[in-house]
Protein backbone atom coordinates (compact mmCIF):
# COMPACT_ATOMS: atom_id res chain seq x y z
CA UNK A 1 0.00 0.00 0.00
CA UNK A 2 1.20 3.45 -0.90
CA UNK A 3 0.20 6.78 0.56
CA UNK A 4 -1.46 7.92 -2.63
CA UNK A 5 -4.86 9.48 -2.08
CA UNK A 6 -7.27 7.68 -4.38
CA UNK A 7 -10.40 9.42 -3.12
CA UNK A 8 -12.43 11.45 -5.54
CA UNK A 9 -15.04 14.10 -4.84
CA UNK A 10 -17.52 14.42 -7.67
CA UNK A 11 -19.29 17.61 -6.73
CA UNK A 12 -20.23 16.16 -3.35
CA UNK A 13 -20.50 12.53 -4.43
CA UNK A 14 -17.57 10.99 -2.55
CA UNK A 15 -15.98 7.84 -3.95
CA UNK A 16 -13.23 5.82 -2.26
CA UNK A 17 -11.43 5.63 -5.60
CA UNK A 18 -12.03 6.57 -9.24
CA UNK A 19 -12.91 3.07 -10.45
CA UNK A 20 -16.58 2.39 -11.19
CA UNK A 21 -18.36 -0.17 -13.36
CA UNK A 22 -20.59 0.84 -16.25
CA UNK A 23 -24.34 0.37 -16.39
CA UNK A 24 -25.53 -2.79 -18.10
CA UNK A 25 -22.17 -4.51 -17.90
CA UNK A 26 -21.93 -5.35 -14.21
CA UNK A 27 -25.47 -6.33 -13.32
CA UNK A 28 -26.22 -5.13 -9.80
CA UNK A 29 -22.68 -5.86 -8.60
CA UNK A 30 -23.31 -9.22 -6.93
CA UNK A 31 -22.93 -11.03 -10.26
CA UNK A 32 -19.19 -10.38 -9.95
CA UNK A 33 -18.69 -11.30 -6.29
CA UNK A 34 -16.68 -14.43 -7.17
CA UNK A 35 -14.18 -12.38 -9.18
CA UNK A 36 -13.95 -8.94 -7.59
CA UNK A 37 -13.61 -7.62 -4.05
CA UNK A 38 -16.73 -5.52 -4.47
CA UNK A 39 -15.91 -3.50 -1.36
CA UNK A 40 -12.96 -2.00 -3.18
CA UNK A 41 -14.94 -0.53 -6.07
CA UNK A 42 -15.64 3.20 -6.06
CA UNK A 43 -19.17 2.68 -7.34
CA UNK A 44 -21.38 0.37 -9.34
CA UNK A 45 -23.75 1.84 -11.92
CA UNK A 46 -26.54 -0.70 -11.95
CA UNK A 47 -28.43 -1.93 -15.01
CA UNK A 48 -30.68 0.63 -16.71
CA UNK A 49 -33.83 0.73 -14.59
CA UNK A 50 -37.28 1.65 -15.85
CA UNK A 51 -40.61 2.41 -14.17
CA UNK A 52 -42.14 -0.92 -15.21
CA UNK A 53 -40.42 -4.27 -15.80
CA UNK A 54 -39.12 -4.76 -19.35
CA UNK A 55 -38.61 -8.04 -21.23
CA UNK A 56 -36.08 -6.52 -23.59
CA UNK A 57 -35.35 -7.38 -27.21
CA UNK A 58 -35.36 -10.71 -29.01
CA UNK A 59 -32.07 -12.59 -29.47
CA UNK A 60 -29.39 -12.40 -30.81
CA UNK A 61 -28.79 -9.42 -28.61
CA UNK A 62 -25.03 -9.14 -29.11
CA UNK A 63 -22.60 -9.40 -31.97
CA UNK A 64 -18.83 -9.34 -31.81
CA UNK A 65 -17.06 -6.82 -34.05
CA UNK A 66 -13.40 -5.84 -34.55
CA UNK A 67 -12.09 -5.09 -31.04
CA UNK A 68 -15.62 -4.41 -29.92
CA UNK A 69 -19.17 -5.63 -29.66
CA UNK A 70 -22.67 -4.47 -30.52
CA UNK A 71 -25.50 -4.84 -28.05
CA UNK A 72 -29.23 -4.38 -28.25
CA UNK A 73 -30.44 -5.76 -24.94
CA UNK A 74 -33.50 -3.53 -24.95
CA UNK A 75 -33.23 -2.55 -21.30
CA UNK A 76 -34.44 -5.85 -19.88
CA UNK A 77 -34.86 -5.10 -16.17
CA UNK A 78 -37.22 -6.00 -13.33
CA UNK A 79 -38.52 -2.44 -12.85
CA UNK A 80 -37.80 0.11 -10.13
CA UNK A 81 -40.18 -1.30 -7.50
CA UNK A 82 -38.61 -4.74 -7.68
CA UNK A 83 -35.17 -3.13 -7.54
CA UNK A 84 -36.04 -1.22 -4.39
CA UNK A 85 -37.63 -4.17 -2.63
CA UNK A 86 -35.43 -7.09 -3.64
CA UNK A 87 -32.11 -5.92 -5.01
CA UNK A 88 -31.10 -2.76 -3.18
CA UNK A 89 -31.17 -4.44 0.28
CA UNK A 90 -28.69 -7.02 -1.07
CA UNK A 91 -26.28 -4.46 -2.51
CA UNK A 92 -26.27 -2.55 0.77
CA UNK A 93 -24.12 -5.25 2.39
CA UNK A 94 -21.18 -4.01 0.28
CA UNK A 95 -19.19 -0.81 0.64
CA UNK A 96 -19.50 0.30 -2.99
CA UNK A 97 -21.80 3.19 -3.82
CA UNK A 98 -24.87 2.10 -5.73
CA UNK A 99 -25.70 4.45 -8.56
CA UNK A 100 -28.97 3.78 -10.34
CA UNK A 101 -29.02 4.28 -14.10
CA UNK A 102 -32.54 5.49 -14.96
CA UNK A 103 -34.20 5.22 -18.35
CA UNK A 104 -37.53 6.47 -19.60
CA UNK A 105 -39.51 7.20 -22.72
CA UNK A 106 -41.08 10.42 -21.45
CA UNK A 107 -39.89 13.22 -19.17
CA UNK A 108 -42.54 12.07 -16.68
CA UNK A 109 -41.03 8.56 -16.57
CA UNK A 110 -37.71 10.02 -15.47
CA UNK A 111 -39.35 12.25 -12.88
CA UNK A 112 -41.33 9.37 -11.37
CA UNK A 113 -38.22 7.20 -11.23
CA UNK A 114 -36.37 9.97 -9.42
CA UNK A 115 -39.09 10.42 -6.85
CA UNK A 116 -39.26 6.67 -6.16
CA UNK A 117 -35.49 6.46 -5.69
CA UNK A 118 -35.14 9.74 -3.80
CA UNK A 119 -35.04 8.42 -0.25
CA UNK A 120 -34.08 4.84 -0.96
CA UNK A 121 -30.47 5.13 0.16
CA UNK A 122 -28.87 4.93 -3.28
CA UNK A 123 -25.79 7.12 -3.69
CA UNK A 124 -26.76 8.90 -6.89
CA UNK A 125 -28.80 8.69 -10.06
CA UNK A 126 -27.30 8.36 -13.50
CA UNK A 127 -29.70 9.68 -16.12
CA UNK A 128 -29.46 7.67 -19.33
CA UNK A 129 -30.55 10.19 -21.96
CA UNK A 130 -29.79 7.85 -24.85
CA UNK A 131 -33.36 6.53 -24.68
CA UNK A 132 -35.92 7.35 -27.36
CA UNK A 133 -38.47 10.05 -26.54
CA UNK A 134 -41.77 8.52 -27.65
CA UNK A 135 -43.44 11.92 -27.75
CA UNK A 136 -40.83 13.15 -30.21
CA UNK A 137 -41.10 10.26 -32.64
CA UNK A 138 -38.46 8.20 -30.90
CA UNK A 139 -35.66 10.73 -31.19
CA UNK A 140 -33.20 10.12 -28.35
CA UNK A 141 -33.39 12.68 -25.52
CA UNK A 142 -29.64 13.00 -25.61
CA UNK A 143 -29.47 14.24 -29.18
CA UNK A 144 -30.88 17.73 -28.61
CA UNK A 145 -29.72 20.20 -25.94
CA UNK A 146 -33.22 21.34 -25.00
CA UNK A 147 -34.64 17.84 -24.72
CA UNK A 148 -31.65 16.66 -22.66
CA UNK A 149 -31.96 19.67 -20.35
CA UNK A 150 -35.70 19.02 -19.94
CA UNK A 151 -35.05 15.58 -18.51
CA UNK A 152 -32.39 16.82 -16.09
CA UNK A 153 -34.62 19.66 -14.84
CA UNK A 154 -37.54 17.30 -14.27
CA UNK A 155 -35.36 14.87 -12.31
CA UNK A 156 -33.73 17.70 -10.34
CA UNK A 157 -37.17 18.80 -9.08
CA UNK A 158 -37.84 15.37 -7.61
CA UNK A 159 -34.63 14.70 -5.74
CA UNK A 160 -31.61 16.11 -3.98
CA UNK A 161 -29.55 13.04 -4.80
CA UNK A 162 -26.38 13.74 -6.78
CA UNK A 163 -27.30 13.64 -10.48
CA UNK A 164 -25.03 12.22 -13.13
CA UNK A 165 -26.14 12.78 -16.72
CA UNK A 166 -24.83 10.19 -19.16
CA UNK A 167 -24.21 11.56 -22.62
CA UNK A 168 -24.78 9.84 -25.94
CA UNK A 169 -21.93 10.07 -28.45
CA UNK A 170 -24.38 9.92 -31.36
CA UNK A 171 -24.51 13.69 -31.74
CA UNK A 172 -22.88 16.35 -33.88
CA UNK A 173 -21.59 18.48 -31.00
CA UNK A 174 -21.31 16.79 -27.63
CA UNK A 175 -20.20 19.99 -25.88
CA UNK A 176 -23.55 21.63 -26.66
CA UNK A 177 -25.39 18.80 -24.86
CA UNK A 178 -22.89 18.91 -21.99
CA UNK A 179 -23.40 22.64 -21.50
CA UNK A 180 -27.18 22.24 -21.61
CA UNK A 181 -27.28 19.55 -18.91
CA UNK A 182 -24.85 21.50 -16.76
CA UNK A 183 -27.13 24.53 -16.94
CA UNK A 184 -30.09 22.28 -16.12
CA UNK A 185 -28.47 21.31 -12.83
CA UNK A 186 -26.60 18.07 -13.29
CA UNK A 187 -23.86 17.55 -10.70
CA UNK A 188 -21.71 15.24 -12.78
CA UNK A 189 -21.51 14.18 -16.43
CA UNK A 190 -20.65 10.64 -17.49
CA UNK A 191 -19.63 9.79 -21.04
CA UNK A 192 -19.78 8.01 -23.39
CA UNK A 193 -22.68 5.67 -23.98
CA UNK A 194 -22.46 3.30 -26.94
CA UNK A 195 -22.11 4.37 -30.59
CA UNK A 196 -24.95 3.24 -32.82
CA UNK A 197 -23.73 0.50 -35.15
CA UNK A 198 -24.67 -2.52 -37.19
CA UNK A 199 -23.30 -5.85 -38.40
CA UNK A 200 -24.55 -7.90 -41.34
CA UNK A 201 -24.18 -11.66 -41.68
CA UNK A 202 -23.02 -12.11 -45.27
CA UNK A 203 -24.12 -15.75 -45.42
CA UNK A 204 -27.67 -15.04 -44.23
CA UNK A 205 -27.59 -11.60 -45.88
CA UNK A 206 -29.33 -10.00 -42.93
CA UNK A 207 -28.42 -8.05 -39.79
CA UNK A 208 -26.92 -10.21 -37.02
CA UNK A 209 -28.86 -8.52 -34.22
CA UNK A 210 -32.57 -9.25 -33.92
CA UNK A 211 -32.98 -5.52 -33.31
CA UNK A 212 -30.93 -4.87 -36.49
CA UNK A 213 -28.95 -2.00 -34.91
CA UNK A 214 -27.10 -1.91 -31.62
CA UNK A 215 -24.65 0.02 -29.49
CA UNK A 216 -20.94 -0.38 -30.16
CA UNK A 217 -18.67 -0.68 -27.11
CA UNK A 218 -15.23 -1.96 -26.24
CA UNK A 219 -11.66 -1.00 -27.26
CA UNK A 220 -12.83 0.04 -30.75
CA UNK A 221 -14.58 3.14 -29.37
CA UNK A 222 -11.88 4.33 -26.98
CA UNK A 223 -10.32 7.03 -29.18
CA UNK A 224 -13.77 8.55 -29.78
CA UNK A 225 -14.48 8.49 -26.05
CA UNK A 226 -11.14 10.06 -25.12
CA UNK A 227 -11.72 12.83 -27.64
CA UNK A 228 -15.19 13.54 -26.27
CA UNK A 229 -13.99 13.61 -22.65
CA UNK A 230 -11.20 15.98 -23.69
CA UNK A 231 -13.70 18.32 -25.39
CA UNK A 232 -16.34 18.21 -22.67
CA UNK A 233 -13.77 18.73 -19.90
CA UNK A 234 -12.99 22.11 -21.44
CA UNK A 235 -16.62 23.06 -22.03
CA UNK A 236 -18.05 22.51 -18.54
CA UNK A 237 -17.06 22.87 -14.87
CA UNK A 238 -18.87 19.83 -13.46
CA UNK A 239 -16.77 16.70 -12.85
CA UNK A 240 -16.71 13.91 -15.43
CA UNK A 241 -16.82 10.12 -15.31
CA UNK A 242 -15.11 8.87 -18.45
CA UNK A 243 -15.77 5.56 -20.14
CA UNK A 244 -15.67 3.82 -23.49
CA UNK A 245 -13.33 0.93 -24.19
CA UNK A 246 -11.27 1.08 -21.01
CA UNK A 247 -9.53 -2.31 -20.76
CA UNK A 248 -6.48 -1.70 -18.57
CA UNK A 249 -4.87 0.85 -16.27
CA UNK A 250 -3.12 2.64 -19.13
CA UNK A 251 -6.49 3.26 -20.79
CA UNK A 252 -7.90 4.51 -17.50
CA UNK A 253 -5.01 6.92 -16.99
CA UNK A 254 -5.56 8.22 -20.52
CA UNK A 255 -9.12 9.20 -19.57
CA UNK A 256 -7.95 10.88 -16.35
CA UNK A 257 -5.37 12.86 -18.29
CA UNK A 258 -8.05 13.83 -20.82
CA UNK A 259 -10.09 15.39 -18.03
CA UNK A 260 -12.16 12.63 -16.40
CA UNK A 261 -12.29 12.75 -12.58
CA UNK A 262 -13.30 9.09 -12.40
CA UNK A 263 -13.66 6.26 -14.87
CA UNK A 264 -16.09 3.47 -15.58
CA UNK A 265 -15.39 0.00 -16.93
CA UNK A 266 -17.90 -1.71 -19.19
CA UNK A 267 -17.26 -4.33 -21.83
CA UNK A 268 -13.82 -5.14 -20.39
CA UNK A 269 -15.56 -6.88 -17.46
CA UNK A 270 -16.81 -9.51 -19.93
CA UNK A 271 -13.32 -10.12 -21.27
CA UNK A 272 -11.64 -10.27 -17.86
CA UNK A 273 -14.01 -10.33 -14.89
CA UNK A 274 -11.16 -9.28 -12.58
CA UNK A 275 -10.15 -6.27 -14.65
CA UNK A 276 -11.61 -3.60 -12.36
CA UNK A 277 -9.25 -4.58 -9.53
CA UNK A 278 -6.29 -4.71 -11.92
CA UNK A 279 -7.13 -1.22 -13.16
CA UNK A 280 -7.45 0.13 -9.63
CA UNK A 281 -4.03 -1.26 -8.72
CA UNK A 282 -2.55 0.00 -11.99
CA UNK A 283 -3.77 3.57 -11.49
CA UNK A 284 -2.16 3.61 -8.07
CA UNK A 285 1.10 2.26 -9.53
CA UNK A 286 1.10 4.96 -12.20
CA UNK A 287 0.63 7.67 -9.59
CA UNK A 288 3.39 6.29 -7.37
CA UNK A 289 5.84 5.79 -10.22
CA UNK A 290 5.28 9.32 -11.44
CA UNK A 291 5.51 10.92 -8.03
CA UNK A 292 1.91 12.01 -7.51
CA UNK A 293 0.10 12.04 -4.17
CA UNK A 294 -3.46 11.93 -5.46
CA UNK A 295 -5.60 11.06 -8.46
CA UNK A 296 -6.77 14.65 -8.60
CA UNK A 297 -3.34 15.85 -9.64
CA UNK A 298 -3.44 14.17 -13.03
CA UNK A 299 -7.02 14.99 -13.99
CA UNK A 300 -6.96 16.98 -17.22
CA UNK A 301 -3.16 17.13 -17.36
CA UNK A 302 -3.16 16.42 -21.09
CA UNK A 303 -5.37 19.40 -21.87
CA UNK A 304 -3.16 21.83 -23.75
Amino acid sequence: MSNVNLKVDLNGLQLANPVTTASGTFGFGEEYKDYVDLNKLGAVMVKGTTLNPKQGNATPRIAETSSGMLNAIGLQNPGVDYFLKNILPETKQYDFKTIVNISGNTVEDYAKLASKLDESGVAALEINISCPNVKKGGLAFGTQPAMAAGVVEAVRQETDLPLITKLSPNVADITAIAEAVEDAGTDVISLINTLLGMKIDIQQQEPVLANKMGGLSGPAIKPVAVRMVYQVAQAVDVPLIGMGGISNAEDAVEFLLAGADAISIGTANFVNPEVSMEILAGIEDYLVENGYDSVEEIVGKAIK
Partner: peptide, 28 residues
Protein backbone atom coordinates in the same frame (compact mmCIF):
# COMPACT_ATOMS: atom_id res chain seq x y z
CA UNK B 1 -26.90 -22.33 -26.41
CA UNK B 2 -27.05 -18.56 -26.75
CA UNK B 3 -24.49 -15.89 -27.55
CA UNK B 4 -22.79 -14.83 -24.36
CA UNK B 5 -21.11 -11.70 -23.16
CA UNK B 6 -20.25 -11.90 -19.47
CA UNK B 7 -21.07 -15.47 -18.44
CA UNK B 8 -21.83 -14.14 -14.94
CA UNK B 9 -25.47 -13.13 -15.34
CA UNK B 10 -24.73 -9.42 -15.64
CA UNK B 11 -25.24 -8.45 -19.28
CA UNK B 12 -28.49 -10.19 -20.30
CA UNK B 13 -27.19 -11.12 -23.76
CA UNK B 14 -27.76 -14.83 -23.40
CA UNK B 15 -31.46 -15.04 -22.63
CA UNK B 16 -33.84 -17.73 -23.81
CA UNK B 17 -37.62 -17.97 -23.58
CA UNK B 18 -38.84 -20.01 -20.62
CA UNK B 19 -42.46 -20.71 -19.73
CA UNK B 20 -43.62 -19.12 -16.47
CA UNK B 21 -46.96 -18.39 -14.89
CA UNK B 22 -47.26 -14.75 -15.81
CA UNK B 23 -49.63 -12.93 -18.13
CA UNK B 24 -47.49 -13.45 -21.20
CA UNK B 25 -46.82 -17.07 -20.23
CA UNK B 26 -43.05 -16.75 -20.63
CA UNK B 27 -40.05 -14.70 -19.64
CA UNK B 28 -36.45 -14.31 -20.72
Amino acid sequence: EERMGCGTGACLSCVCKIKVETESGWEY
